[in-house]
Nucleic acid binder design. Structure first.
Length: 1025
RNA sequence: GGGCUCGUAGCUUAGCACGGUUGGAGCGCUCGGCUGAUAACCGAGAGGUCUGGAGUUCAAAUCUCCGCGGGCCCA
């Protein structure tokens, strides 16, 4: 019976992959691979949810295949690996997409359009590219359960998020403050950091040096000024403080200044290191440290701004003050700068907001009222000049952010915002980070650790529409706040009736009015939604609707493994840790693998604007998913950036996948001819040929190395080792060396050893490779194992991952082979030097070396003999005289060095018989080539005719048996040269195939004729089966 | 502007944590060889200021510092 299906020599990987996808679908292989491990130890994974409102690009594909590799591997290692897909659906990017569709660009326009309709559009748009995502995910072979994903806009998800926020609220960690945000005054919207980063431009702004008059007890004293610098004159209206660096040196200097037309003297304070901003001569009167200036009061520049909540107009000290530019004295306006806001809050200073939300001055500042702030710069400068407190004015070139949509300069503007007090959890964050393994390691205390060290409170709220509504209600009457933690609680506390299937989004939730506990007044929800990073950071519990359903969460927390790209360090990697620390005070994941980015072939980041983004759908039209995966895994450390091109993928296919395929094809071809059955033969490894034991040893060493590397998430190390094994050890060495053993026709022990070894190694290799290249391995497995070995599984992905058998690792055997391979190289080198081709057999090589090496080499001397094509291999001690050893003239031998103590000598004087043999091998080689030209079956018999001179004829006659045996000829006879010689095309239609050859200086005519034999019919029928 | 990270032949890269033979491979190129699994393989050759500079050291691709360039994050 026939065990294996024959294969084509060239694999059509794209077609093969389609077939495997169908097979997996049909047989529910994915589901079974998970289910069959039910009850086993869990390996918990959390999918970092992508947003499906954009097309997947190569970077997404990278994370998907890395996730897939690790999860398949862990599954095969016996873990229960549940894989729930997830979708991130809220947030500003979604809103912006919809705004674009609607042709609007501001909050008012959205409100005018209607929040209900707008949010519906958002909801519709988040799955705009779901089909593409699902297709790409399937196509690359990422096994994840997309039928039951978690979706951040679902009520269950939101309810869990609400619960968690209430936990935070109950702990007193949720508070209302101000946040300075980049703000477009025209669109009246805050911008995300990403949007801000898009819009930086180099512009020239005014750069002014302003004299702030120090308040002195004695009005008679000579006036003293603090010299401060700013590039945004309009923010002076919000000035609250001047900041100096506590430990830098400041000086009091006497300078001449122009006031109107007169020149007079002033005493100014500034940093010593910044003295060169002064114009003209100066005299240093006094030196002191910045901290000596602390609390020094000065007169407000303008007396009309209303200041609330604390002191103002004094000198403070702050570490952020630098001496790179300006005067070392920094104008501080908490309404217009994030750092300013922070430092004023810390120092308990007051706050002033003279600018309205549309970027115009309010009625608090009468002379400027209604003016757009940027347009007021000139007027302010003039006012300062008139009052004699402008020291000098320059222009200043710097990069400043503009709105990417409308081009307006952005303003930094303090808005009310809700915060989570992450700063107070700093030590807990650090402690939880201690329990996490980072790959690469340097992130733990580097980028991520540093970030945690200086953690700021989390600005949670967004004044937007499409997001999880912030679940805080405030009482209209008494101001009391309440945080709702569930739908049930919402229903209980609501004054109006709330259906249990209420859509928790705006605007519906805005209509729910709660009753105040304190005064029974009406409570309204604050209008904000929350940062969508909080949504995805809640995934570990919200995907299971915890705590409303508890079981799944209990079993799936913390995660053992997550992986995303490096940009998520401060994104999802942080939001997960932040939320989890606030709620559970536990790390949400124990291992995190951070990946590099995919760059284009020139090493430049892929971006829409550059037009260098590779379209995945087009790519999959031409490239195999396995080739893509293998390229990504082997390209280099995945923690670094990877260059990406279709060309690179094609090379991988050529080099690796084709080699793997050809090894498999070789086996199937001969196993079919021989009707080899792995079930019928069993030969213990120790009884097999040395090269078999060597290959098996290499395989087990490989298995060990691969598992070690995978456990450390060094995926490129693992995959490169497999690639080396497949190409070098298996294909280029084992199969090439063992080829002849498979050609033996009759029953033969050594042949069986070879078949068994190659079969076992291919099957193990297949399993080792299954998580990496799931398609081709499945295909091979289906043919080699399924239905052949009785106790095996239906799919390679249902198998256990191989574990190394240490008893089969033969270190000395691997060492021997390494040495032999070096000796073979030396032998070839010697031949090349002597100008004798390898087909010409020679008498002997002599190897001189130490005892150790000799023992090593003798074990496999046969290989050396074959590869170098000599009749004998001799050994000698390195110390013996070489001439004695060689029983003849040294001149006949070519010397090749292997290492300091090892040398190889090749006899370069072939005898007449050897020369004949060489000639005959040439004829065999030519004949084989002709067989191949005719695409003959490997088993097909032929007749040979030849015409040549006497010398060649004698050689042919002497070796006719050998020739017939090698070329499957039933006869070889002298004949007449045909004219003209027939071509291979003629011959395919049943004619003789003739060719003239030049072998050395001999002309040889060869003709072959296939015999349509019973054998051939049998092969054809086999194939058709 | 700040932090982190990467920078080795035309291209893709190993080596670097722990300094020490002549910095290894592959693709591509030239020449020769081998071949009935292989668009494969083997040998020889051309091709390297190991991003530039400085320092530490008997000795630096490797350690330190300062530049330059790419990437990410934050401004």
């Amino acid at each position: 019976m026939l065990y294996f299906k024959r294969e084509t020599q060239k694999a059509d990987f794209a077609k093969l992959e389609e077939e495997i996808l169908e097979l997996w679908d049909r047989e529910k292989t994915f589901e079974r691979s998970v289910d069959q491990r039910d009850g086993c130890d869990k390996f918990v994974f959390v999918e970092g949810p992508p947003t499906a409102n954009g097309l997947p690009h190569p970077g997404h594909i990278l994370t998907r295949v890395v996730k897939d590799l690790v999860l398949r591997y862990k599954t095969m290692r016996g873990f229960y690996v549940r894989r729930k897909a997830g979708w991130d659906t809220h947030g500003l990017p979604v809103e912006i997409e919809v705004e674009k569709d609607l042709g609007i660009s501001s909050k008012q326009e959205i409100e005018k359009y209607g929040i209900e309709k707008f949010n519906q559009k958002c909801k519709d748009s988040v799955f705009r590219y779901e089909k593409e995502w699902v297709n790409a995910t399937k196509r690359v072979g990422f096994w994840i359960d997309m039928d039951d994903p978690y979706i951040t806009f679902k009520n269950d998800y939101i309810e869990s998020v609400w619960w968690s926020l209430k936990e935070i609220w109950n702990r007193g960690l949720l508070y209302k403050g101000h946040k300075v945000v980049p703000f477009c005054p025209r669109c009246e919207t805050t911008l995300s950091s990403h949007e801000v980063a898009q819009g930086y431009q180099d512009v020239e702004d005014p750069s002014i040096y302003v004299k702030f008059k120090v308040k002195q007890e004695n009005d008679e004293s000579e006036p003293l000024y603090l010299l401060a610098w700013t590039t945004t004159p309009w923010t002076l209206l919000g000035n609250i403080a001047l900041a100096v660096h506590p430990s830098h040196t400041y000086v009091k200097v006497r300078v001449s200044v122009k006031d109107e037309d007169r020149v007079k003297e002033n005493v100014l304070i500034l940093a010593e290191a910044r003295l060169d901003v002064l114009e003209g001569e100066y005299e240093i009167i006094e030196r002191f440290k910045g901290k000596d200036l602390e609390d020094l009061k000065y007169e407000p520049l303008f007396d009309f701004a209303k200041i609330e909540g604390g002191e103002a107009h004094k000198v403070i000290t702050a570490d952020f003050v630098t001496l790179d530019e300006g005067t070392g004295i920094v104008h501080t306006a908490p309404a217009f700068g994030e750092v300013d806001y922070e430092v004023c809050r810390e120092k308990k200073l007051g706050f002033s907001q003279p600018v309205s939300i549309d970027g115009h001055f309010t009625d608090e500042v009468p002379p400027l009222e209604g003016m757009f702030v940027k347009d007021a710069d000139r007027l302010i400068i003039d006012m300062l000049t008139q009052r004699g407190i402008l020291y000098k004015e320059e222009r200043y070139l710097h990069s400043y952010p503009f709105c990417w949509r409308c081009g307006s300069p952005l303003l930094y503007y303090a808005r009310e915002s809700w915060f989570i007090a992450m700063k107070s959890l700093r030590d807990n964050l650090l402690a939880n980070n201690e329990q996490i393994n980072w790959y690469p390691e340097y992130l733990k205390y580097g980028r991520f650790g540093n970030f945690l060290e200086d953690i700021e409170d989390w600005a949670l709220s967004r004044e937007r529409f499409w997001g999880t509504p912030l679940n805080i209600w405030l009482c209209n009457d008494c101001g009391q706040g309440h945080c709702v933690g569930s739908i049930k609680e919402l229903q209980e506390k609501a004054k109006n009736s709330v259906p249990s299937d209420i859509d928790l989004h705006r605007p519906y939730i805005d209509d729910v009015v709660l009753e105040c506990d304190s005064c029974s007044g009406d409570m309204q929800r604050v209008k904000d939604v929350i940062d969508c990073w909080y949504d995805s950071g809640s995934a570990p519990f919200a995907q299971w609707h915890y705590p409303f359903e508890v079981e799944e969460f209990r079993q799936n927390f913390p995660a053992h493994f997550i992986t995303e790209a490096i940009d998520q360090t401060r994104g999802w990697f942080y939001s997960l840790l932040g939320v989890s620390t606030a709620i559970f005070d536990a790390p949400p994941y124990l291992n995190v693998l951070s990946l590099g980015h995919i760059l284009d072939e020139k090493g430049v980041k892929m971006s829409k604007s550059k037009g260098n983004v590779v379209d995945m759908n087009t790519l999959f039209d031409t490239e195999a998913a396995d080739a893509l995966r293998w390229y990504l895994f082997t390209a280099g450390p995945l923690t670094d950036d990877i260059r990406f091109s279709a060309q690179a993928i094609r090379e991988k296919q050529k080099k690796f996948l084709n080699t793997l395929w050809n090894s498999y094809f070789f086996f199937v071809t001969y196993a079919t001819i021989d009707q080899f059955s792995p079930n019928e033969k069993s030969i213990p490894v120790e009884q097999r040929n040395a090269i078999d034991r060597w290959l098996i040893s290499r395989l087990n060493t490989l298995t060990k190395d691969v598992i070690d590397a995978l456990e450390r998430f060094e995926l490129h190390v693992a995959s490169r080792k497999i690639e080396e094994f497949t190409i070098n050890d298996l294909s280029n060495w084992y199969i090439r060396r063992s080829r002849r053993r498979f050609w033996i026709v009759e029953e033969n022990f050594d042949k069986d050893c070879a078949y068994l070894t190659l079969y076992e190694v291919l099957v193990s290799l297949c399993k080792l490779l299954a998580p990496f290249v799931p398609f081709v391995t499945e295909h091979i497995y289906q043919n080699l194992v399924r239905g052949v070995l009785e106790d095996e599984r239906d799919s390679v992905h249902l198998c256990d991952y191989p574990s190394p058998d240490e008893s089969l690792i033969a270190v000395e055997l691997e060492g021997s082979m390494e040495l032999i391979s070096k000796l073979v190289d030396a032998g070839r080198r010697a031949r090349s030097d002597a100008g004798i081709k390898i087909r010409q057999p020679l008498k002997e090589v002599v190897v001189t070396c130490g005892k150790d090496k000799r023992e090593k080499a003798e074990r496999m001397a046969g290989i050396l003999k074959d590869e170098v094509n000599v009749k004998e291999v001799k050994f000698g001690d390195a110390s013996e005289g070489i001439a004695d050893l060689l029983e003849g003239e040294l001149a006949n031998y070519k010397r090749a060095e292997v290492d300091e103590e090892t040398c190889l000598f090749l006899d370069c004087c072939p005898s007449k018989t050897l020369i004949e043999e060489g000639l005959v091998r040439d004829i065999v080689r030519r004949t084989q080539g002709m067989r191949k030209d005719l695409d003959l079956e490997y088993t097909e018999k032929i007749e040979i005719m030849y015409a040549c001179d006497e010398e060649v004829k004698e050689a042919i006659q002497n070796f006719s048996d050998y020739i017939c045996n090698e070329t499957l000829a039933v006869s070889i006879e002298e004949g007449e040269e045909g004219t003209p010689p027939s071509s291979a095309e003629d011959a395919k239609s049943g004619h003789i195939y003739e060719k003239r050859w030049k072998i050395g200086d001999k002309d040889v005519y060869l003709a072959i004729k296939p015999i349509l034999s019973v054998e051939r019919d049998k092969n054809i029928s086999k194939r058709e089966k």
